[in-house]
């Protein structure tokens, strides 16, 4: 049952991936399981859009972010996607 559930989710994702256009404005988010809370992204963000969130991991304020992509290049854990 579990396996079927996971396979279904994967198929849906694949369909979305193949059949859908990219959103017109990119959006950056943090993969919390990879973030080590180093704060490097906070120090480089030109929009003051990143803070440390509830679990000590970085979180991006989407209303402030202008999608410059600086944080993605600087993250030592490649946690921003």
């Amino acid at each position: 049952m579990k396996k079927i559930g996971i396979i279904l989710i994967l198929i849906i994702i694949l369909m979305v991936y193949i059949g859908c256009d990219k959103v017109s404005n990119p959006e950056y988010n943090v993969d919390k399981s990879a973030c080590n809370s180093c704060g490097a992204c906070i120090g480089i963000c030109p929009k003051d859009a990143i803070e440390i969130g509830e679990d000590g991991k970085a979180i991006i304020d989407q209303t402030k972010c202008n999608q410059c992509g600086k944080c993605i290049a600087i993250c030592p854990e490649d946690a921003i996607y």
């Binding site: 994702i13 979305v16 990219k22 959103v23 990119p26 950056y28």
Partner: peptide, 24 residues
């Protein structure tokens, strides 16, 4: 192995868009 998919749905155009996919 981890995989994250972000997608969104636009009411006006009734279209699904992909925001970001990450496979690690």
């Amino acid at each position: 192995v981890s995989y994250i998919n972000r997608s969104c749905y636009d009411n006006e155009t009734s279209q699904i868009y992909r925001v970001s996919n990450m496979l690690r």
